[in-house]
Each structure stands twice: as structure tokens, then as C-alpha cells.
Design a protein around this nucleic acid. Structure first.
Lengths: 200, 200, 200, 200
DNA sequence: AATGAATGAGGGTTCATTCAT
DNA sequence: TATGAATGAACCCTCATTCAT
């Protein structure tokens, strides 16, 4: 049989992206076969190649789209006129909410960097550094105007990101604390890291 | 030909462990073949099975030994009589030093949990929780005696561990700061997280 | 989208024939995919099936048309009233010129016989034998009237054809000798094979 | 199951070579799958890779060994002291006998040159040219000492080889003429091509 | 008459594992 | 305890062909 009536290319590509995302996040890129992705999607393995030239391209597409979307979302939400403390809080809220919504994309983007071929790796790494420059810039502004007391801006930036990302490994919707509560704790933890006096 | 003169079973097993550690850390469990491990070790793939019953056992062995060694090392270095602030600093130093020395074991232990079969997974998870109880206990002691001002003990514990582990992703011996300097920064960052007043 | 403006069915079929001829000659029938033929022609693989029912039919069409055209061309150029020596020279000239112009068709017709399914194979073989009967008949006439001194008519016929066809494997337009010169040499070689005294 | 008792590597490699030779000659390199070769040999497809790294290497091995063996066989049988007429007859006999015995190797060596990757192709082409220099040298000697009357040495060389090789396409052991008789005819045809007076 | 998406089979190759030696 | 040869399944990917549009 040929094409199933009613199916379109864009739909199938999206289904494939979704299935691959799910499977790569759960088992890792190398452990997921094209057949597994196909089975999850209800097409034959060969049909995947109508939408993505190789398995590597499928991974790269996922990571690329994630990073592009993340950066675009930040640009849209960014409020450059905020004071450093307000900007930092704004960033932490954004980061937590965005990353919890896309925990699989985030997980893959950190975990499967090593599965990318050289050229793809460089491109994604560049985007990742661009994003990391966001909190770094806020820290630098706050250090300059005295609202933060930063120990080491680079280490502190990485510490904040690591701390926030760590949340995706243990957060469950049904846990002890609500997302709002967790968020509030993290905001205060970040403030401590940057040496900002707690406003009361 | 049979055994190469001069090689003993224990030696080969250790070489295999080392090669597997290196390769699993670099490429991930699923992406590493038994032949690749064998090639790195200078033996044939079949010979691995004289030392480890399956590939899964090889991974499990690495993770199990790592966790056991980590816990044993902590038990040996632990100084139960220390005050919470001193104990926390002692733990951070231990954790950083130990984890930087074994960055591949640490990486695998977090990354390849999902590659473990159920039974193995549970056992390793249990050990991991045991280790996480170490800083948690220190935090609880410090909260109780007033030397710390903890926002949420569980979240703070996870935040500390995530922050410290994040270091393994970017630390290079040839970087801007020495290990001693980095360690000092991290100790102060941890103190901030637990709300301990900086002693001067 | 449907048909591209300005293209007609006959045009596309001819482009396909030409691309298939080129690719089959260069890489062999089995090594050429329908997609490769389509790509060379600027259409999608599926479109080929509007013009040729199967890949096998495409090959068969090429070989069939070649043999038909060859035989028709000979019939048109044949001059039955010529003496055996003149007829042989006429045939050699015809064969060389015709085969050099269609080196790919000739190559395929000898090389890809084995790729034809039974029925197609028989039909093409029959046409090939028909063509081989042309020089054979000239040799027989020349043997009968004493103008040739044939060692064995069948072997000599095959030897002449093999010798002439071999030319297509090494002839280059830019080579040491012009086509006219090569032709002259071959005519004299054929005369030697049939034991005809060189006229001076 | 692992290795079948009693089988050795060299034996299997030889069986594989033989099966591949047979199948490549019959259907062409591209049309023969590794699975087909395996089936003919009674092993699994994967086992072929214990003996030949790739399908291309298997083809290259066949062609390389054939050309090496051909050149070695000629060197062994060559009698440099023979007069050009005797040397030519010696060569024709050698060529016919050798090529009929290895008709599949010969067929592959001419037909599958195009299936060789660049490097392999160059190496085989070089060997083929070396062999073609054998009759060419005899012709040159005979032209120099007046025992031959050569029209064009290069064309005549190629004509002789093409004529002799053509034999492999139609020769059947059960045919009208015996091999000795055919050989005798070919020797006389070659003498005619080089313009040697028939001794009677 | 063409596209583009699909099928189901099969391509070359690698895999974890086994076992005679 | 090691080798090297084997299995059988699976890998990524391409194939000829079909068909809704």
C-alpha cells in the first residue's frame, strides 16, 4: 500500500519528532532504533527517511529546534529595563517553567551532545553558550551596580544553571511541594548564591 | 593460542573495567560494543566473557564498585564529631576531590542509571540515596542547632549536589582557577545556600 | 503539484531512456536505482511508472530499441549486389561507425543480457543472432566464390565481431589515431582474418 | 551456536571466495547480496565479515588474486628464448587454456572493473596493463626481426586479446569442435593478424 | 503526467553472545 | 584464560513499487 488517505507529510514529521523525543529521552539516542520510533508512530521504518535524511538528523533537528525555541522564548519574555534583582528573578522563573515544560528536550540537549557529529555539536554548543550568557549578563550588571555580591561570576553562573537543571531530575507534579512553592525556594536560593540581601 | 604469557585473570578484568569505564563515559553504554572494549584492551571480544557474564554485568559492576567505594571512602574520612559548619565544609571538600578524581565513574553513575536492568537499578539507586543522606543529615543537624538557616532541607540538599556535580561538566585542570581556588568558591557558595554566616 | 508546464509524456519518456542508458552503462543495471534515474531526469521516482511499468521494462526497452534500430540501420545501408570483399568492408565500416556512436547501447546489450528476465532475454538473443548472421553470410559468400580463404566460418565470424567490439573499450576521440585511420587498420585486419589478398 | 566443529577459517574463506566468484560471474557484483553468498556457503551473512571486511574487499580479493595468479602463471611458463612466432603461439595457447579454465575470473575481471572503488581499480588496471604488455612485446620483437608484418602494434595487440577473450562467451565443452581444434584455428587467426606467413 | 508519502522487503554491516580449540 | 569463528537478531538505510492527491 502507498500513502494512507488523510495523512500529510507535516503531520507525520511531527509525530516522528514527538516519538523520537520521548524515546531518546527515556533510553538514549544510541539505544533507540529507527524501528522503535517507527513502531511508536505507526509507520514503517523506511518511511522515516521521507522526513529526516538520517537518524543523526532527527536528533539534531530536535536539539536545534529546542535551543532555537528556548532562545526565542527568552527574547520574547526578556525585560531589559528590569533591575538586576528583578531580572534574575524573572530569569529563574522563566528557566524553571520553561524547562519543566520541556524536561525531555532539556534532558536530551544536555545528555546527547556527545551523540552529535562534530558539525552539529558545534552549532548546538554555540547556542547553549548564548543562553548561558543571559544569567551571566544579569550577574555582571548586579555586581556592577552593587545589588549583588558575587564570589566568582563564572562559577556562580554555572552553579545557578546546574542547580536549576538538577530540579528536572527529581521534580514530580505529585510531589510534596507545589511548583509555585518550589519556584519560590529556588528564587531565594539563587538570591543567596549571588549575595543579594533578602528583601522582607 | 591460549593465554598470553604474563597476563593473569585479575589483570585482564581490571583492564576491561578501565576500558569500559572510559568508553561508557565517552559514548554511553548503548553506543559501546563489546568489541570496542576488547579492542581497547587488546583482547578478543569473546575473552570478556571469561570475566563478566554479560555487558550489563560489566556496567553494573562499574556502578556498584563506584558507589561502594564512594560510600566506603566517605565512611573512612567522616569525622562525626565535627560541628555542622565544619562537617559541611569537610563534605564539600571530600565530594569535590573525590568526584573530580572519578569524573567518569560519576558521569556514568548518573547517566547510565537508565541502562540498568530493574534489579540492578534498584540496588544502585538505594546506594545513591544513602550517599545523599550524608549532606542531608549535616543540614538537619545544622538547622537543629541554629548554625544553618535552611529554606527547605530536601531542595537545598539536591541543589548542593547538583551544583557540585555540575562542576565535573566544565572543570579543566588548565582552566583559569586552580582546584584549590574553585573549591574555596564552592565552599562559600554552599555556605550561602544553607544560610550560614560567613566567618571572617 | 501535477505536471510541470511544457513537458509532455513523450519528452519525459525520452529523458528517462537517456538517463537510464547512461547510468546502466556506467554502473550496471542492478547498481542503478529508479531514484537515481529519476534524479538524473529531474522527476520523482514515482513518475517513471507513468512511462515504464517496471525497471525491467525500462532495460528491455533500451535493448529492444537498440537491436531493432541496429537491424533497421543495417537493412537500410545494406547493398546486396556488392561482391563479398566490398560487402565485408561495407559491413566493417557500418559496424564501427554505428557502434562507436552508440557505445553505451552496445555495452549494455552485451553486458546486461544476464539482467533480462527469461522472455526478454530470448527475444534480444534472437535479434543478436540475426545481426551476427550478416557477417556470417558475407563470409559464406566469399568462401563460396573463392574471394576469401576462411579457416572456420563460425569462429571467424565471432572473432571479427569480438575484435570490432573490443574497440569500444579503448577508443577515445582524442587518441593517437583518427577514427578514419583506425577504421582503415581494422578493415585490413578483418581482410587478413578472412584470408583475402590485400589489393594494392 | 558458535563454531561448527571441524571448520577452519581458511576453509571457510575459500568456500566464500568460490561462492562469490560463481555468483558475481553469473549475476554481477551489484546483484549479489552477502546473504546470497552466505546461503551458498552454508554460513550466516555476518560470518562473512570474519573473513572479508566488506563486500568490496571480497570482490577486490577475487580480482587481485586472479591477476596475480595469471601473471605468476605466465612468468612460470614464459620461454624468453623463443622466436617471435613460437613465442606468440606459446602465448596464445597459454592464454586460451588459462582463460577457459578460469572463465569466471576472467569475466569478472573485465566486467566488474567498474564496481571497484578508485584505489582498487587503479591497482587492478595496472596489473591488466602489465599482462597486455606481454603480447605487445612479442609483436614488437617480431616486427623488429621481420618475422611479422604488423599493421599497427597497439591495435593489433588489443585485437588479439579481444578476439581470444571473445571465445569465453561462446565456448562450450560439448560444442562442435574440440578445444584442440579451436585452439589451432585461433593460432592461425592470430598469425594472420600479425602478417606471419603460414608455414606448411 | 507528476508529486510526495507510504509499504514491505531486503541491502550491507554490526551486535551480544557462544563455543571448539 | 584466550582465540577466532560462528550464530541469529538487529542495526541504519535503500529499494522497487503503489497510490491519494
Amino acid at each position: 500500500m502507498a500513502r494512507r488517505a488523510g495523512s500529510t507529510g507535516a503531520e507525520t514529521a511531527e509525530k516522528l519528532r514527538k516519538a523520537a523525543l520521548e524515546l531518546f529521552a527515556r533510553s538514549g539516542y544510541a539505544a533507540v532504533s529507527m524501528r522503535a520510533i517507527a513502531a511508536e508512530t505507526g509507520v514503517q521504518a523506511g518511511a522515516i527517511y521521507n522526513h529526516f535524511p538520517t537518524k543523526q538528523d532527527l536528533l539534531n533537528d530536535l536539539m536545534r529546534v529546542h535551543m532555537d525555541t528556548l532562545l526565542a522564548a527568552w527574547e520574547e519574555t526578556e525585560q531589559p529595563e528590569l533591575s538586576p534583582p528583578a531580572a534574575l528573578e524573572h530569569f529563574v522563573r522563566f528557566h524553571i517553567r520553561y524547562h519543566l515544560d520541556r524536561s525531555r528536550e532539556v534532558f536530551i540537549s544536555y545528555m546527547e551532545l556527545r551523540s552529535l557529529e562534530d558539525e552539529n555539536f558545534s552549532a548546538i554548543e554555540r547556542l547553549r553558550r548564548t543562553y548561558e550568557r543571559v544569567p551571566r549578563a544579569i550577574l555582571d550588571r548586579g555586581a556592577a551596580d552593587g545589588s549583588f555580591d558575587i564570589l566568582d561570576p563564572q562559577i556562580t553562573t554555572m552553579a545557578i544553571i546546574a542547580m536549576l537543571n538538577g530540579m528536572t531530575t527529581w521534580y514530580r507534579e505529585t510531589g510534596r511541594l507545589s511548583l509555585d512553592e518550589i519556584e519560590a525556594v529556588y528564587i531565594r536560593l539563587v538570591k543567596r548564591l549571588v549575595g543579594q540581601k533578602e528583601e522582607d
